[in-house]
Amino acid sequence: MNELYEKYIKKESLPTLFCPGCGNGIVQFAAIKAFEKLGIKDELACVSGIGCSSWIPCYFKMDVMHTMHGRALPFAEGLKLARPDKKILIFTGDGDCLAIGGNHLIHAASRNIDLTVIEINNYIYGMTGGQKSPATPEGAVTKTSPFGSYDEPIDGCSLVAAAGGTYVARWTTAHPLQLEKAIAEGIEHKGFSFIEVLTQCPVQAGNNIFGEKSPVAMMARYKEMTYIYKEGMEIPEGKVRIGRIKHDTSRKEYTDKVLQKLEEKNIKKGQSNG
Protein backbone atom coordinates (compact mmCIF):
# COMPACT_ATOMS: atom_id res chain seq x y z
CA MET A 1 0.00 0.00 0.00
CA ASN A 2 1.07 3.50 -0.68
CA GLU A 3 2.74 5.03 2.40
CA LEU A 4 0.71 8.21 2.32
CA TYR A 5 -2.45 6.22 1.83
CA GLU A 6 -1.58 4.08 4.80
CA LYS A 7 -1.05 7.16 6.96
CA TYR A 8 -4.53 8.54 6.33
CA ILE A 9 -6.67 5.48 5.66
CA LYS A 10 -8.21 3.03 8.10
CA LYS A 11 -6.68 -0.20 6.93
CA GLU A 12 -9.33 -2.39 8.56
CA SER A 13 -12.08 -0.79 6.46
CA LEU A 14 -10.47 -1.73 3.14
CA PRO A 15 -11.20 -2.54 0.38
CA THR A 16 -13.20 0.60 -0.42
CA LEU A 17 -16.67 -0.01 -1.79
CA PHE A 18 -15.88 1.82 -5.03
CA CYS A 19 -16.06 -0.14 -8.29
CA PRO A 20 -12.77 -0.81 -10.12
CA GLY A 21 -11.65 2.35 -11.91
CA CYS A 22 -13.97 4.66 -9.99
CA GLY A 23 -12.83 8.27 -9.90
CA ASN A 24 -13.70 8.67 -6.23
CA GLY A 25 -10.45 6.96 -5.26
CA ILE A 26 -8.49 9.51 -7.27
CA VAL A 27 -10.24 12.38 -5.50
CA GLN A 28 -9.59 10.64 -2.20
CA PHE A 29 -5.87 10.46 -2.92
CA ALA A 30 -5.79 14.09 -4.11
CA ALA A 31 -7.41 15.10 -0.82
CA ILE A 32 -4.85 13.07 1.13
CA LYS A 33 -2.05 14.77 -0.78
CA ALA A 34 -3.59 18.15 0.06
CA PHE A 35 -3.82 17.24 3.77
CA GLU A 36 -0.18 16.18 3.73
CA LYS A 37 0.83 19.38 1.98
CA LEU A 38 -0.99 21.53 4.53
CA GLY A 39 -0.14 19.28 7.49
CA ILE A 40 -3.52 19.86 9.14
CA LYS A 41 -4.82 16.38 9.90
CA ASP A 42 -5.83 17.23 13.48
CA GLU A 43 -7.34 20.56 12.57
CA LEU A 44 -9.70 19.04 10.07
CA ALA A 45 -12.95 17.11 10.12
CA CYS A 46 -14.86 15.66 7.20
CA VAL A 47 -18.60 15.62 6.68
CA SER A 48 -20.42 13.83 3.90
CA GLY A 49 -23.92 13.01 2.79
CA ILE A 50 -25.19 9.92 1.00
CA GLY A 51 -24.02 8.46 -2.28
CA CYS A 52 -20.86 6.90 -3.68
CA SER A 53 -18.87 10.10 -3.32
CA SER A 54 -19.94 10.50 0.30
CA TRP A 55 -18.10 7.31 1.15
CA ILE A 56 -14.73 8.93 0.42
CA PRO A 57 -14.10 10.34 3.93
CA CYS A 58 -15.42 7.23 5.66
CA TYR A 59 -12.02 5.62 5.23
CA PHE A 60 -10.07 8.54 6.69
CA LYS A 61 -8.34 8.27 10.04
CA MET A 62 -9.92 11.46 11.36
CA ASP A 63 -13.18 12.81 12.75
CA VAL A 64 -15.78 11.99 10.15
CA MET A 65 -19.53 12.46 9.97
CA HIS A 66 -21.39 10.38 7.39
CA THR A 67 -24.80 11.97 7.49
CA MET A 68 -28.14 12.13 5.75
CA HIS A 69 -28.86 12.44 2.05
CA GLY A 70 -28.34 16.04 0.97
CA ARG A 71 -27.83 17.38 4.48
CA ALA A 72 -24.05 17.33 4.80
CA LEU A 73 -23.93 21.13 4.65
CA PRO A 74 -26.20 21.91 7.63
CA PHE A 75 -24.33 19.33 9.71
CA ALA A 76 -21.05 20.94 8.71
CA GLU A 77 -22.38 24.43 9.42
CA GLY A 78 -23.35 23.36 12.94
CA LEU A 79 -19.93 21.83 13.49
CA LYS A 80 -18.13 24.85 12.08
CA LEU A 81 -20.12 27.30 14.22
CA ALA A 82 -19.43 25.19 17.30
CA ARG A 83 -15.71 25.10 16.49
CA PRO A 84 -14.90 28.14 14.33
CA ASP A 85 -11.17 27.51 14.81
CA LYS A 86 -11.23 24.26 12.83
CA LYS A 87 -11.50 23.43 9.13
CA ILE A 88 -14.33 21.35 7.71
CA LEU A 89 -14.17 19.49 4.43
CA ILE A 90 -17.36 18.22 2.82
CA PHE A 91 -17.56 15.43 0.28
CA THR A 92 -20.76 15.34 -1.67
CA GLY A 93 -22.06 14.22 -5.04
CA ASP A 94 -24.03 15.86 -7.82
CA GLY A 95 -27.33 14.42 -6.64
CA ASP A 96 -26.57 14.93 -2.97
CA CYS A 97 -25.48 18.52 -3.43
CA LEU A 98 -27.52 19.88 -6.34
CA ALA A 99 -30.77 17.94 -6.07
CA ILE A 100 -31.81 17.10 -2.51
CA GLY A 101 -29.33 19.46 -0.89
CA GLY A 102 -29.66 22.33 -3.36
CA ASN A 103 -31.27 24.74 -0.92
CA HIS A 104 -28.62 24.14 1.71
CA LEU A 105 -25.91 24.75 -0.90
CA ILE A 106 -27.38 28.11 -1.91
CA HIS A 107 -27.72 29.25 1.69
CA ALA A 108 -24.29 28.05 2.81
CA ALA A 109 -22.75 29.84 -0.18
CA SER A 110 -24.63 33.04 0.47
CA ARG A 111 -23.55 32.98 4.12
CA ASN A 112 -19.97 32.57 2.89
CA ILE A 113 -19.28 30.31 5.85
CA ASP A 114 -15.78 28.83 5.93
CA LEU A 115 -16.41 25.36 4.53
CA THR A 116 -14.77 23.51 1.67
CA VAL A 117 -17.15 21.51 -0.48
CA ILE A 118 -15.84 18.94 -2.91
CA GLU A 119 -18.71 18.09 -5.20
CA ILE A 120 -17.95 14.93 -7.10
CA ASN A 121 -19.89 15.03 -10.33
CA ASN A 122 -20.20 11.73 -12.16
CA TYR A 123 -23.31 12.85 -14.09
CA ILE A 124 -25.46 10.09 -12.63
CA TYR A 125 -26.86 8.47 -9.48
CA GLY A 126 -24.31 5.71 -9.08
CA MET A 127 -25.22 4.04 -5.81
CA THR A 128 -28.85 3.41 -6.70
CA GLY A 129 -27.92 2.05 -10.10
CA GLY A 130 -27.81 4.70 -12.82
CA GLN A 131 -30.70 7.13 -12.61
CA LYS A 132 -30.82 10.68 -13.95
CA SER A 133 -29.12 13.28 -11.75
CA PRO A 134 -29.34 17.09 -11.95
CA ALA A 135 -26.02 17.07 -13.81
CA THR A 136 -27.03 14.48 -16.42
CA PRO A 137 -26.70 16.00 -19.91
CA GLU A 138 -29.92 16.75 -21.76
CA GLY A 139 -31.03 13.86 -23.89
CA ALA A 140 -28.99 11.24 -22.03
CA VAL A 141 -30.73 7.90 -21.64
CA THR A 142 -30.63 6.62 -18.07
CA LYS A 143 -32.73 4.21 -16.04
CA THR A 144 -35.22 6.97 -15.20
CA SER A 145 -35.06 8.86 -18.49
CA PRO A 146 -35.72 6.10 -21.05
CA PHE A 147 -36.49 8.60 -23.84
CA GLY A 148 -33.60 10.86 -22.94
CA SER A 149 -33.40 13.36 -20.12
CA TYR A 150 -35.69 16.36 -20.60
CA ASP A 151 -33.97 18.56 -18.01
CA GLU A 152 -31.12 20.85 -18.76
CA PRO A 153 -28.21 20.04 -16.45
CA ILE A 154 -27.50 22.32 -13.50
CA ASP A 155 -24.05 23.87 -13.39
CA GLY A 156 -22.98 23.69 -9.75
CA CYS A 157 -20.06 26.10 -10.14
CA SER A 158 -22.16 28.87 -11.71
CA LEU A 159 -24.82 28.35 -9.08
CA VAL A 160 -22.39 28.71 -6.19
CA ALA A 161 -20.58 31.65 -7.77
CA ALA A 162 -23.92 33.41 -8.25
CA ALA A 163 -25.11 32.57 -4.73
CA GLY A 164 -22.03 34.15 -3.20
CA GLY A 165 -19.44 31.41 -2.77
CA THR A 166 -16.00 32.98 -2.74
CA TYR A 167 -13.79 30.19 -4.08
CA VAL A 168 -15.09 28.19 -7.00
CA ALA A 169 -13.06 25.77 -9.11
CA ARG A 170 -13.70 22.84 -11.38
CA TRP A 171 -11.27 20.06 -12.24
CA THR A 172 -11.48 16.49 -13.43
CA THR A 173 -9.87 13.28 -12.29
CA ALA A 174 -7.61 13.57 -15.32
CA HIS A 175 -6.01 16.61 -13.64
CA PRO A 176 -4.89 15.15 -10.29
CA LEU A 177 -2.10 17.69 -9.66
CA GLN A 178 -4.33 20.70 -10.21
CA LEU A 179 -7.10 19.08 -8.20
CA GLU A 180 -4.78 18.55 -5.26
CA LYS A 181 -3.72 22.19 -5.45
CA ALA A 182 -7.31 23.36 -5.65
CA ILE A 183 -8.31 21.31 -2.59
CA ALA A 184 -5.42 22.77 -0.62
CA GLU A 185 -6.35 26.25 -1.80
CA GLY A 186 -9.98 25.67 -0.93
CA ILE A 187 -9.15 24.53 2.60
CA GLU A 188 -6.86 27.49 3.14
CA HIS A 189 -9.33 29.97 1.69
CA LYS A 190 -11.33 31.74 4.40
CA GLY A 191 -14.84 31.55 3.06
CA PHE A 192 -17.13 29.19 1.19
CA SER A 193 -15.08 27.10 -1.23
CA PHE A 194 -16.67 24.90 -3.84
CA ILE A 195 -14.66 22.51 -5.97
CA GLU A 196 -16.45 20.46 -8.58
CA VAL A 197 -14.61 17.37 -9.76
CA LEU A 198 -15.75 15.60 -12.89
CA THR A 199 -15.17 11.93 -12.20
CA GLN A 200 -15.65 8.82 -14.20
CA CYS A 201 -18.28 6.31 -13.17
CA PRO A 202 -17.35 3.52 -15.55
CA VAL A 203 -20.21 1.30 -14.43
CA GLN A 204 -23.27 3.58 -14.46
CA ALA A 205 -22.42 6.75 -16.39
CA GLY A 206 -20.04 4.80 -18.61
CA ASN A 207 -22.78 2.46 -19.71
CA ASN A 208 -25.66 4.89 -19.89
CA ILE A 209 -24.27 8.27 -20.85
CA PHE A 210 -20.84 8.00 -22.42
CA GLY A 211 -21.10 4.64 -24.07
CA GLU A 212 -17.66 3.53 -22.95
CA LYS A 213 -16.88 1.41 -19.96
CA SER A 214 -13.15 1.93 -19.72
CA PRO A 215 -12.12 4.36 -16.98
CA VAL A 216 -9.08 5.40 -18.98
CA ALA A 217 -11.15 6.24 -22.06
CA MET A 218 -13.54 8.24 -19.89
CA MET A 219 -10.69 10.19 -18.35
CA ALA A 220 -9.29 10.90 -21.80
CA ARG A 221 -12.71 12.12 -22.85
CA TYR A 222 -12.92 14.44 -19.83
CA LYS A 223 -9.58 15.89 -20.82
CA GLU A 224 -10.86 16.42 -24.33
CA MET A 225 -14.18 17.98 -23.47
CA THR A 226 -12.78 20.48 -20.97
CA TYR A 227 -10.89 23.70 -21.42
CA ILE A 228 -8.65 25.18 -18.73
CA TYR A 229 -9.83 28.69 -18.16
CA LYS A 230 -7.49 31.54 -17.40
CA GLU A 231 -8.55 35.12 -16.99
CA GLY A 232 -9.57 36.87 -20.19
CA MET A 233 -9.87 33.69 -22.17
CA GLU A 234 -12.83 32.62 -24.19
CA ILE A 235 -14.10 29.10 -23.87
CA PRO A 236 -14.56 27.35 -27.22
CA GLU A 237 -18.07 26.27 -28.10
CA GLY A 238 -19.17 23.00 -26.49
CA LYS A 239 -16.28 22.77 -24.03
CA VAL A 240 -16.61 22.64 -20.29
CA ARG A 241 -14.77 25.35 -18.44
CA ILE A 242 -12.36 24.03 -15.82
CA GLY A 243 -9.79 25.70 -13.61
CA ARG A 244 -10.24 28.33 -10.94
CA ILE A 245 -13.51 30.06 -11.73
CA LYS A 246 -13.85 32.49 -8.86
CA HIS A 247 -11.53 33.62 -6.09
CA ASP A 248 -12.83 36.53 -4.07
CA THR A 249 -11.13 37.49 -0.83
CA SER A 250 -13.04 40.72 -0.31
CA ARG A 251 -16.21 39.24 1.15
CA LYS A 252 -16.36 38.73 4.91
CA GLU A 253 -16.67 35.23 6.25
CA TYR A 254 -19.71 34.31 8.39
CA THR A 255 -18.04 33.19 11.63
CA ASP A 256 -15.73 36.19 11.47
CA LYS A 257 -18.74 38.47 11.15
CA VAL A 258 -20.36 36.82 14.18
CA LEU A 259 -17.21 37.01 16.29
CA GLN A 260 -16.63 40.62 15.34
CA LYS A 261 -20.17 41.57 16.30
CA LEU A 262 -19.85 39.82 19.64
CA GLU A 263 -16.58 41.59 20.29
CA GLU A 264 -18.24 44.92 19.56
CA LYS A 265 -20.91 44.05 22.07
CA ASN A 266 -18.26 42.95 24.56
CA ILE A 267 -19.30 39.32 24.63
CA LYS A 268 -16.59 36.72 24.83
CA LYS A 269 -17.13 33.74 22.56
CA GLY A 270 -17.71 30.50 24.42
CA GLN A 271 -17.71 32.17 27.84
CA SER A 272 -19.20 29.13 29.46
CA ASN A 273 -19.01 26.06 27.36
CA GLY A 274 -21.94 23.72 27.76
Partner: peptide, 30 residues
Protein backbone atom coordinates in the same frame (compact mmCIF):
# COMPACT_ATOMS: atom_id res chain seq x y z
CA UNK B 1 -25.29 35.12 21.85
CA UNK B 2 -25.18 37.08 25.09
CA UNK B 3 -24.38 33.84 26.90
CA UNK B 4 -21.47 33.29 24.53
CA UNK B 5 -23.25 30.68 22.46
CA UNK B 6 -24.18 30.41 18.83
CA UNK B 7 -27.49 31.25 17.27
CA UNK B 8 -28.27 30.65 13.63
CA UNK B 9 -31.51 30.97 11.73
CA UNK B 10 -31.33 28.16 9.21
CA UNK B 11 -32.97 27.92 5.80
CA UNK B 12 -35.48 25.30 6.97
CA UNK B 13 -36.29 22.93 9.80
CA UNK B 14 -34.29 20.13 8.21
CA UNK B 15 -31.23 22.35 8.32
CA UNK B 16 -31.97 23.33 11.92
CA UNK B 17 -32.26 19.74 13.10
CA UNK B 18 -29.11 18.74 11.22
CA UNK B 19 -26.98 21.63 12.40
CA UNK B 20 -27.76 21.03 16.06
CA UNK B 21 -26.47 17.49 15.66
CA UNK B 22 -23.34 18.82 13.95
CA UNK B 23 -22.86 21.36 16.74
CA UNK B 24 -23.20 18.72 19.44
CA UNK B 25 -20.33 16.81 17.89
CA UNK B 26 -18.44 20.09 17.97
CA UNK B 27 -18.83 19.96 21.74
CA UNK B 28 -21.74 22.33 22.29
CA UNK B 29 -25.04 21.37 23.89
CA UNK B 30 -27.64 22.15 21.31
Amino acid sequence: QKAGGVFIQMEDEIGSACSIIGARWGGKRS
